[in-house]
Design a protein around this nucleic acid. Sequence first.
DNA 1: GTACATCGCGCG
DNA 2: AAAGCGCGCGATGTAC
Length: 571
Amino acid sequence: MQQFAVVATHSISQPESEAGSATAVVQLVDAAGTALMPPVQVYGNSLPAVVAELEASRRPRWVFDSVHDWYPGLLSAGVRIERVHDLGLVRAILRNAPYAEPGGYIDSVRALADPSTAAPAHLLPPARVSENQGELFSEPKDQAGALENVLEEFRAQRAAVPETERGARLGLLLAAESAGALIGAEMTHAGVPWDVAEHHRLLAEALGERVPAGVRPPRMEELAAQLRALLDAPGLNPDSPAELLKAMNRAGIAVSNTRAWELTEIKHPVIEPLLAYKKIARLATANGYAWVDRWVHEGRFRPEYIVGGVVTGRWASHGGGALQIPHQVRSAVRADAGKVLVVADAAQLEPRILAALSRDDALATAARGQDLYQGIADAGFGGDRAHAKIAMLGAMYGATTGESGRLMPKLKATYPRAVGLVEWAAAQGEAGAPVATYLGRGTPEVPAAWRQAKSRASSESEQRAVETEGRSRGRFTRNFIVQGTAAEWALCWMGELRRRLNAGRTAGIETGELVFFLHDEIMLHVPAEQAETVVELVHASARAASELLFGQIPVDFPVTAVVVDSYDQAK
DNA sequence: GTACATCGCGCG
DNA sequence: AAAGCGCGCGATGTAC
């Protein structure tokens, strides 16, 4: 029998509350929400002990208002849990889920303020019982009330998932999203192993000796002096695009902005040192000494992951720009002695997802094997891989002009189902209609401003603005179904991998830890002797994820997994 | 002083 | 070489 351990926390209590008064209450219930034993009162800082005891004896699915708020404290106390249902994450998905059972709960959730326009969580005061819950349920006056609120929402969420094939998919999404919350917190807890000495070495190599904050590093200062001389602009601050643009125009360089890629087109002596300056200036400001001081502690970089933080279901992150670690500094991501990094990524995930979504057998055939773009090239682009790739990316992103636009008719003739699906999604968006991922994550409602402008636009210029916005919405919905379903595949991949790692750990094998995730790429920090075992688990998890989502279909989702000492050695 | 917009560039 | 999608973040500059 499936058991759930519902955790309710009092509105004013946080994990570090004083001993003496109950800070939380835990209730074990069955799938119908019926109590299986008397509620357990949690006093002071004893939540980890209570959770550890129940986890060991019952293996329940835990029900938390927010894993992001509560799991870090448990991890710090050495307590891990296997399965969870995160009320907040589930609420956010159900809000826009087209397959959700209509009813009072869904209506009330949809009536809540749009979370995508709310302030970021880290800028808000400490959470109450649950974000937004004050609007859903009356503020609880005691523990019993808090517990009843959580139980009621839990029951309502379960009831909102219909017992249909689509409902089963939605249920999988909710479970995967919740598991993701555990994984995100566990990755933050583990941290990415970071070699500060190596990072300092590469900074010194590029920028020159370290100087105090606020002083321009030596190599940048040298280049700045060259730029001032070449542009005959003695006071120029090259960090200011406006100043730089003026100085370049004065020197007779006809540009309208200072973007690096546009500068490469221009023939002028200043371009080379300017591009060199931009390159190292970026390193210095984004991932320089200040970054290391601020974000790396005890040899670990610990970004916070915001599960479902992107509209499509991708993860966002907070702190240190974790999702943009430049290739330039990846040599500083280095395994501890005796350990290695296992770096794995799903090859060309999005077009493969499109093949699965659209059941396009021709595209599935091209996707057989490691290089999908070469497969497309051989099928219809005279073996020209570059053209095949541009065409495919254009189809998924909505390119209409240039190379990509010209290649579209050919792509559509070769893969009518795949291209037809993304064109349908774009048409939905242009019409102001929603679309959904394979597992049922729906697009947010259309911004009210556009909806109103659509019905009111009178002048020709207003009409044009509305149409431009519509095409933009179409590109968004076109990409949403692909990017969002790819995010679901990746979530299932990690979830499957986590289960296997945990099973290994239970069996006494130190399988190491997931330490980093980036859309279609994962990194593990593992004992060297377990590397090959973990590589196998990574592959097995990818196969399991593909089948979990799509069942038996003729689309391959190959992953590459390499064993390295440092991140720069991967691909 | 804070808040916000813009530019530019890093990642998938 | 970017374009067409999705992000985070630092420096600068302006408004209040």
